[in-house]
């Protein structure tokens, strides 16, 4: 099975949208997808941040996406999981650094892992770093 991995490291809303769209469309196209959420991106997955749409960095396109109710990055990942083979991994280090537990995050993570584990999962497939 074709494989793709997406690393989400930025808290820029538009980057999250773009990365999650790639991941979900790949997943529904029969590609095995692994998403690794790390560094600043982790903060954007807090339940409260998503519910309030209070993302720290949003430009003109991001604001329009919210205003026009385009599907949110978290919903895109959920669709990818529901209709394909997509897994989402939370970076253990990023969670530790912001003193957060997985239950504070939107419920779409499959597992908390470190970089070595993720690299193992990504091996042999293409990797997009967003």
């Amino acid at each position: 099975m074709e494989k793709m991995s997406v690393v989400l490291a930025s808290d820029e809303f538009e980057k999250l949208q773009a990365g999650c769209m790639m991941a979900s469309v790949a997943s529904v196209s029969g590609v095995e997808v692994n998403v690794f959420v790390t560094m600043a991106a982790m903060t954007c997955f807090r339940k409260k941040t998503v519910a309030d749409r209070s993302f720290p960095k949003m430009g003109e396109v991001g604001q329009a996406a919210i205003r026009k109710k385009a599907p949110l990055f978290s919903d895109l990942l959920l669709q990818g999981k529901e209709m394909g083979s997509l897994k989402v991994f939370a970076c253990a280090l990023a969670l530790d650094l912001i003193d957060a537990k997985l239950d504070e995050m939107v419920p779409l993570f499959d597992e908390v892992v470190g970089v070595a584990t993720f690299l193992g999962k990504a091996e042999g497939g293409q990797v997009l770093f967003v």
């Binding site: 769209m21 979900s24 469309v25 529904v28 026009k68 385009a70 599907p71 895109l76 669709q79 209709m83």
Partner: peptide
């Protein structure tokens, strides 16, 4: 619907 809504 916005992309990728129709495909989904």
């Amino acid at each position: 619907l916005y992309c990728p809504g129709p495909l989904m």
